[in-house]
């Protein structure tokens, strides 16, 4: 569905250098990345702000022309065949709506129908289905500017799917949504991927999205892919400390124990980091034998920690 081969994109950035002079430097937003996504996959695309996520997505959708390299999406060259590609993919930007601000949602969806030349009868059936799945009924006739963020997001999803695209690209679709809206959107996306076989590529900062939705993750940092594989393997690949939380009977100087170090203290409570190659049980036993402990708990690293670690250090892709 998506083939990206040695794709790079650099931007010219002008900086002020002196009173009238401007220096012009090239910044590599994306630096020769390659990957493929097969039909039916659900892929998470992660990376810190400014890593090149949006730039990649904009190249995949034909908004930006790559500086070099080759991209094929649904067999088309996005930059050259942007309009043809637009008919076959759906795109949602969480930060900005594709709906028309002043029009009621229903009219926006009608406009979208005209733009994508969807048959009236097909549109009606599709709209009924989307209305039910995304629960749009109560605000179909409300102007978009009056919708809540959650409603708008669902409206945007509907607009991106009116023409039944093969590939859905989502740029931070759950940003700013409350728990319930997130759940609705996630359930809908899972269903779309599993039942209709729509390929989904999603960028997000919400690791809940990744854990609940994606089978595969790609991580980009400083314009380069630092990881491409399953969520499971990502956890295993990246060394992340486990955290031991110890409640002592009374405040004490930092615990000294082999294999772990105190990272934080707060009165009688102390946090100890245990590297992945140290036996946690041994540390627990050692602490318990030498200190008066009220309570003790071990926290396994979450995907957040894994990703944070990955952003900071970067890990070469192992195959």
């Amino acid at each position: 569905m998506i083939e990206v081969d040695e794709v790079a994109k650099s931007f010219a950035v002008r900086r002020r250098a002196g009173l009238l002079r401007r220096s012009r430097t090239l910044v590599d937003a994306v630096d020769r990345i390659s990957f493929t996504v097969a039909a039916g996959e659900f892929v998470g695309y992660l990376g810190p702000n400014g890593a090149g996520k949006s730039t990649t997505i904009k190249m995949l959708t034909g908004i930006l022309t790559p500086s070099s390299g080759r991209i094929r999406v649904a067999g088309l060259d996005p930059a050259r065949q942007r309009t043809a590609l637009a008919r076959r993919i759906g795109v949602v930007f969480g930060q900005r709506t594709t709906l028309w601000w002043d029009l009621p949602l229903r009219d926006s969806l009608t406009l979208v129908r005209h733009l994508y030349r969807v048959e009236r009868s097909v549109h009606r059936a599709r709209l009924a289905e989307l209305t039910e799945l995304l629960d749009l009924g109560s605000f179909l006739d409300t102007p978009v500017r009056q919708l809540s963020l959650g409603q708008r997001m669902r409206g945007d999803l509907a607009a991106a799917l009116v023409h039944d695209p093969e590939l859905l690209v989502l740029d931070e679709p759950t940003i700013g949504l409350d728990v319930i809206s997130k759940a609705t959107v996630r359930a809908f996306l899972t269903r779309l991927n599993e039942e209709q076989g729509t390929t989904i590529l999603l960028t997000t900062h919400d690791l809940g999205d990744v854990e609940r939705l994606c089978r595969r993750v790609m991580v980009i940092d400083h314009g380069q892919l630092t990881y491409d594989g399953s969520v499971q393997r990502l956890r295993e690949t990246v060394d992340v400390d486990r955290l031991l939380i110890v409640d002592l009977a009374a405040s004490a100087p930092p615990i000294e124990v082999d294999g772990a170090r105190v990272v934080r203290t707060d009165g009688p409570r102390q946090w100890l980091a245990i590297p992945s190659d140290v036996n946690a049980a041994a540390v627990v036993a050692a602490v318990a034998s030498r200190y008066e402990v009220e309570d003790i708990s071990l926290r396994e690293p979450g995907i957040e920690d894994v990703i944070t670690r990955l952003y900071r250090t970067g890990v070469p892709t192992r195959s």
């Binding site: 043809a84 637009a86 900005r96 709506t97 733009l115």
Partner: peptide
Amino acid sequence: KGTLDTVLLRPVSPLLQ
């Protein structure tokens, strides 16, 4: 405003839109 991006995502000439 960055809204040209959304215009470019639709299968119709941005000029027409």
